[in-house]
Write a protein that binds this DNA or RNA. Structure first.
Lengths: 145, 145
DNA sequence: TCTTGACTTGGATTATGTCTAATGTAGGAT
DNA sequence: ATCCTACATTAGACATAATCCAAGTCAAGA
C-alpha cells in the first residue's frame, strides 16, 4: 500500500491524512466497498473525515487508474482497488458478495464486425451471477432475494 | 405488443390503461429507457399517470420476465423489452447510446471451476464499451465525456 | 349492476451522489 | 524554522433516483 502512496506522490498527488486513510481502507483482495462503506471504515481511523472528501478521493483514484468503479447491482457504485490485473466479477444474486475472477478467452473477439454498429469497441466488462456457497446452503430451492 | 398484453392477461395480470401505456412505450428494438423516460413518454398518452405507477409496472414486468433491467452507467436503471432473445449490450462511452448485440461464444464456459469459488454460476452479462460512429466523428482525439 | 381486492395517486421519505463557500494545510520557497 | 499559497477538507445544502404509504379508484368476475 505504501507503494501506492509513493507512486501517487510521485505523480504530484498531495498526501493528506484523509487520502492516506482512504487508500488504506481499500487495501486487500476482493475488496469492493461502496463509498459509504469506505467512509464508515475511514471514520474509525480518522473520525472527522467527511463524506465529500471520501467521494473526492475515490474519484481521483479512479481518474488516476488506481481504483476501478463497478456497479453490479444498479445501486451504489463500488470501488475495486485491484486495478493492475485485468479481471471480471462474480456476484452472488442473493447476498451481493463479489469475487474477482479471471476467465479465459477474450470476449472482445466474440463480437463480430456486423454486430458492432460502427462502434470503435475498446473495452468489455463481464459479470457472472450465481449463488455463493453460503447462500446456496441456506436457500434450498427458493428464488434469489 | 398486443401479444405481450394478451400473455400477461393470461397470467392474471389486471389490465389497466396505465399498464397498457407503459407496455406500449417499451415497444421496439434497441429500446433502453430510464424509468423517467418511460414516464415522460407515457404522459404524452395518458397525462395523469404517476411516477409511482411507472416504477411499479416496470418492476412487475421485470418480475414477470418480460423486461430486463440494465444499469450500464451506474446512474438510472434502464429497461430493455428484448427479454426473449439472449443478448448483450454495446454502450457508447461518450453519449451513452445502447445497442443490443449478439456475441458468438459462451462466456460461461470461459470461467474455470477453480475461478468459481464454489458459486453455482447461472448467468453472465457482458457490456462492450466504445465510441459510436456519431461521437467518433465529433471527437477526433480527446477523452470520452 | 355490484362488490371487492387489486391498482393508482401524489406527496413524503430514503438512498446515493454532487456542489459550494469558508476554512485548513502540505510542501516548496526563503 | 517559518511563511505562502495553491490545493484539500468540511458541513451542509442541493440534486437525482427510487421507494413507501394512506387514501381514493377501478377492472373484472359474480
Amino acid at each position: 500500500m505504501s507503494d501506492l502512496l509513493e507512486r501517487l506522490r510521485g505523480r504530484g498527488w498531495r498526501l493528506t491524512a484523509q487520502r492516506r486513510v482512504v487508500a488504506e481502507v481499500l487495501n486487500g483482495d476482493h475488496v469492493h466497498y461502496t463509498a459509504d462503506e469506505v467512509h464508515a471504515r475511514a471514520i474509525e481511523r480518522l473520525p472527522e473525515i467527511s463524506r465529500a472528501t471520501v467521494y473526492n478521493t475515490l474519484g481521483e483514484l479512479v481518474s488516476l487508474g488506481e481504483v476501478i468503479e463497478v456497479s453490479t447491482d444498479g445501486r451504489a457504485k463500488r470501488y475495486d482497488p485491484n486495478a493492475h490485473r485485468a479481471h471480471q466479477h462474480l456476484v452472488c444474486s442473493r447476498c451481493g458478495t463479489i469475487r474477482d475472477v479471471h476467465p479465459s478467452g477474450n470476449p472482445l473477439a466474440d463480437l463480430p464486425a456486423e454486430e458492432r454498429f460502427g462502434f470503435a469497441v475498446s473495452a468489455v466488462e463481464v459479470t457472472y451471477r450465481g449463488l455463493c456457497p453460503e447462500c446456496a446452503a441456506t436457500e434450498p430451492a427458493g428464488q434469489p432475494a
